[in-house]
Nucleic acid binder design. Structure first.
Lengths: 195, 195
DNA sequence: ACAGCTCTAGAACGAACGCTCTACCCAATT
DNA sequence: AATTGGGTAGAGCGTTCGTTCTAGAGCTGT
């Protein structure tokens, strides 16, 4: 067998969570989409729906982290890196028909009240991404305080711009955010050449 | 009569949508929360759940627009206005125990696939807010292109920062975004005194 | 007094929800 | 050859979903 049943369940759930959120995604839909049966799902995830969702969110978190790290490593200049990242996201969004947005936002917003395992998984994913940006900025010589605040803002802005882009079915908000974030980063006057 | 039944339904639904999204909010829960009965709800909103949600989103859209307009009108400098707006949002978020975030994001993310009336209502709310910021910037002498891109970015960033703040149960992301947005706006070197 | 209207009230319906349960398949072990 | 156990399969449980429906309360105009 190419991919294990467990992996199929996680991947399918990740995509469903991204598109319809946690409450909007049913266990039976996961079963159908992943070509697994209820028996298999509850075999691998005795914790039920939430356990599946947690695994899926963690998967998505790692996946986007890899994409982000790629952008950050490829471009020496952090402003350029953010720009190229938003361009990639915009392209992906358009190609998916504006449905494949941030893989954790939808699920995160639905589980804010209760401090569930799922909520923690979403927070960890977000913070992991932020840390990648933070490390890049620190590595480029940004002072710690500025870097921290910038990293938070960059992730938040990309997050929000992706939602805006989805709602308006347009790449523009994401691209605009990329350009403005690049400008903001440049405004600190620290470039790679200076190091 | 203090508040009409119809208004109670709309207001209660708005709060529920803000906290639990569209799928997570049930008609019967709306009935209980708004002290109305199913009969009343379907009397005022023959369109069912979606019609109630559309009215609630429109209500929330107007409500936040008023808050935003207040901030923008009170501060002559747009950077200051954005700063004070994020401060207000941060305070409100903390006071609510991090549950009362953006009133449309949650609902918007769940209705992206289908181009429903609800999805349009969310888009209109977001665009209305963006327009307020845009008008402010234009009024302060920003060139049209810069103003448009800035307005989109400001709304997106605030949107995203609110989510990040909720997930991390901290005001910091919102305040950081406010400071960085203010810096970004200032970087255009157009201040009210110059006019 | 009566008819007509708006609004309230909640029982009842079919569908879908998350989950439990039993039965079965099949490769590895004894 | 028999047994074990990981994995597959899906019927069925109790509950909740959104919606429909009938019944009646309260007021207005005649």
């Amino acid at each position: 067998m190419q991919t294990s049943t467990r992996d199929r369940i996680v991947v399918a759930t990740a995509r469903l969570l991204q598109r319809q959120g946690y409450v909007g995604t049913g266990i039976k839909q996961i079963a159908k989409e992943s070509q697994a049966t209820l028996g298999s799902i509850y075999h691998f995830f005795p914790g039920g729906k939430e356990a599946v969702a947690v695994a899926a969110i963690r998967h998505s978190g790692r996946e986007f982290a890899a994409l982000l790290k790629d952008s950050l490593d490829r471009q020496p200049e952090p402003s350029e890196a953010v720009l190229s990242c938003t361009r990639e996201l915009a392209a992906g969004l358009r190609e998916s028909g504006w449905v494949d947005g941030c893989p954790v936002t939808a699920a995160a917003l639905e589980t804010l009240g209760a401090d569930s395992e799922l909520q923690k998984a979403c927070a960890e994913a977000l913070n992991g991404w932020e840390r990648l940006v933070l490390d890049k900025l620190l590595g480029c010589g940004f002072p710690a305080d500025d870097a921290r605040e910038l990293a938070t803002t960059v992730i938040s802005a990309i997050e929000g711009a992706e939602v805006t882009a989805q709602v308006n079915r347009s790449e523009e908000p994401l691209l605009a955010a990329g350009r403005q974030l690049a400008r903001l980063i440049r405004s600190y006057g620290i470039d790679a050449a200076r190091r």
